[in-house]
């Protein structure tokens, strides 16, 4: 019950925030945090719960974004239909990659996803008629709900918040469901999971497909917010790695982890970028890289679990002291 009260409280606080904060830059950081938290949530489903590391989640993100952008700019399709198309393509593609890999043990899925993202990036560069290649696609600024484009940041703020809340709730629910238990069982030991009647290949595939769908939705939000998309921006390996990094820092396989990770890293990254300036190109990603190594070596379970354990030991110590 307490968890509900807290979640609602934080949600209410975040909802009220735009009434107070008017600085565009801060709102922008919040919006980015919501977006990346949702994206990390999608990664968490397959990488955290099911333990199948994707290093190409940017591909699904980018597929959603490009489907929507190409649809609206080139074919005049409503972004809502573009969204649906993007999600469907992302899901089908993720199934096509997952199917051969999930029957196997070993790092094949990781290798496939990283290779796939690179291939999609190159195809996007190559297929200029459709994608405008390296130039990228500019979405004309025509505000309106039908176009899913808004003037001002506040509407994006609320859509982003809703996206984060929904995807987090989904993870929360999965964690407590049969599906979530199955994913975790497969992650912990595939032989034992099979012996418990869990069709491991199938469940990994389901997780990958749901994850790809959410990533594609995030991509659509990204392009409708930025109103610009290019291959370097969305298909870069760094995009995939950020999703993984946030989840791991916060706590992979916990519903709160990705949100905590995004809430830490996005503001930090934005301030670092502003502070270091253009002169220090590469430094803030280098910083992410070092953080990744350190987290894996020092707190591999992530912040959420580590803090929880600390609180628990503190509590038990207190109890023990009282006993004495």
């Amino acid at each position: 019950m307490k968890r509900w009260v807290w979640s609602l409280f934080i949600l209410a606080l975040l909802s009220a925030l735009p009434l107070v904060v008017e600085t565009q830059f801060y709102l922008h950081i919040f919006i980015l945090t919501f977006l990346y938290a949702s994206f990390a949530n999608s990664w968490n489903l397959i990488g955290g719960y099911a333990g199948q590391l994707s290093l190409g989640h940017a591909a699904f993100f980018g597929i959603g974004a490009y489907a929507c952008a190409i649809g609206s700019v080139k074919f005049g399709i409503s972004p809502f239909i573009g969204l649906a198309i993007g999600v469907i393509i992302a899901v089908l593609v993720s199934a096509a990659i997952g199917y051969p890999c999930f029957r196997l043990r070993g790092p094949f899925y990781t290798l496939s996803t990283i290779a796939f993202a690179e291939v999609v990036r190159l195809l996007t560069l190559y297929w200029r008629d459709l994608t405008e290649g390296a130039v990228g696609i500019l979405i004309p600024f025509k505000p309106g709900v039908a176009n899913l484009i808004f003037s001002g940041k506040v509407p994006y703020y609320y859509i982003g918040l809703a996206m984060m809340a929904l995807s987090t709730f989904l993870c929360y629910h999965v964690e407590r469901s049969r599906f979530g238990y199955y994913l975790v069982a497969v992650r912990e030991d595939e032989d034992a999971a099979e012996a418990c009647g869990i069709r491991s290949a199938r469940y990994k595939l389901y997780a990958a497909m749901i994850s790809a769908a959410i990533a594609a939705v995030c991509g659509v939000f990204y392009v409708q917010y930025m109103l610009f998309i290019d291959p370097e921006g969305v298909f870069n390996l760094n995009v995939s790695i950020q999703a993984a990094l946030m989840t791991i820092i916060g706590g992979a396989g916990t519903w709160l982890g990705p949100v905590v990770g995004a809430a830490l890293l996005i503001p930090l990254g934005e301030f670092l970028r502003g502070w270091l300036g253009g002169a220090a190109r590469g430094l803030h990603m280098a910083f992410y890289g070092i953080v990744l190594i350190v987290v894996v070596m020092v707190i591999p379970q992530g912040i959420v679990v580590t803090v929880k354990n600390l609180l628990k030991t503190k509590a038990t110590r207190k109890v023990e002291e009282e006993r004495r």
Binding site: A244, G282, L283, M285, Y288, I293, V296, P300
Partner: peptide, 23 residues
């Protein structure tokens, strides 16, 4: 540690080296 942690450590190294070189 689980294999995933080893993967992430080398991925972290890769990101670091690449961006330090860029810098």
């Amino acid at each position: 540690s689980p294999a995933s942690m080893q993967i992430f450590a080398t991925v972290g190294l890769s990101v670091t080296l690449q961006n330090v070189a860029l810098f």
